[in-house]
Computed example of a mutant assay.
Amino acid sequence: MSNQTTGRFMPTGWDESVIEDIDGEGETKNGTYYPSRGVTTAKVIFDYTGDIAGTGVATYLFAYRDSKAGHADIIGYERFTGTIDGQEGSSVFRHTGSYADGAVSAHVEVLPGLGTDGLADLTGAADVSMAGAPPEGGYEFTLTRD
């Protein structure tokens, strides 16, 4: 495998629900309630294409500090199953990031010891961002291996 591999990803499923609503205030967008201050959980499904191809299933925690202003801290774990540079298997990614003004920025790290088959020894990280409508083919994901 080379040091960097690039693919594209697209969220294809999103199910978010409130764990804690601190003030009992918030707003509903597209049928989902977001507390002004509180904690939610979301299960998100990603489809990957390119030299990183497969499916990721992520579970996130969002800590909203002010949903009307659009600010949240994000942590989560994603199990990716598919191929990276032709190596087939699965691995787990840890996401840490933030949501601000309609855009998500996150650092994604491969967690050692949780990979299988051809991805058992995979290491590395990626920085991703999602803003606005998805571009043609999805958002870019470039994995840089250690």
Rank of each mutant, 00 (worst) to 15 (best):
N3Y: 10
R8M: 04
F9L: 07
F9N: 01
P11L: 00
T12V: 14
G13N: 15
D15P: 06
D15R: 12
D15T: 12
S17D: 12
I19H: 07
I22T: 13
D23H: 13
G24V: 12
E25S: 13
G26F: 08
K29P: 10
N30C: 13
G31E: 15
T32W: 10
Y33C: 13
Y33K: 15
Y33I: 11
P35I: 11
P35C: 07
R37E: 15
R37K: 15
G38H: 07
G38I: 05
T40R: 06
A42P: 01
A42C: 11
A42Y: 08
A42R: 01
A42T: 08
K43H: 09
K43V: 14
I45L: 11
I45P: 00
I45G: 08
F46S: 01
D47L: 01
T49C: 00
T49M: 05
G50Y: 08
D51H: 06
A53K: 10
A53L: 04
G54A: 07
T55I: 13
T55C: 07
G56N: 09
V57W: 00
A58C: 11
A58S: 12
L61A: 06
L61F: 03
F62W: 07
F62H: 09
A63H: 04
Y64V: 01
Y64F: 15
D66W: 01
S67E: 10
S67A: 14
K68Y: 14
K68S: 13
K68V: 12
A69C: 05
A69T: 02
A69R: 13
G70Q: 04
H71C: 06
A72W: 01
A72N: 06
A72G: 00
D73N: 12
D73A: 13
I75Y: 02
I75D: 00
Y77C: 04
T81S: 14
G82V: 07
G82H: 10
T83N: 11
E88T: 15
E88A: 15
E88S: 15
E88Y: 06
G89W: 01
G89V: 05
G89I: 03
G89K: 01
G89Q: 04
S90N: 08
S90I: 01
V92Y: 00
H95A: 03
T96N: 03
G102Y: 02
V104C: 07
S105K: 15
A106K: 02
H107G: 14
H107K: 09
V108D: 05
V108H: 01
V110A: 02
L111M: 15
G113N: 04
G113A: 08
G113Y: 11
L114M: 10
G115F: 06
G115H: 03
T116N: 04
T116I: 06
D117P: 06
D117W: 11
L119D: 07
L119F: 10
D121N: 15
D121Y: 11
T123M: 10
T123D: 03
T123Y: 02
G124P: 04
A125H: 14
D127C: 04
V128A: 05
A131N: 12
A131T: 10
G132K: 10
G132Q: 04
A133G: 02
P134A: 12
P134R: 00
P134M: 03
E136V: 08
E136M: 07
G138H: 01
G138A: 00
Y139H: 11
E140R: 12
L143K: 00
R145V: 12
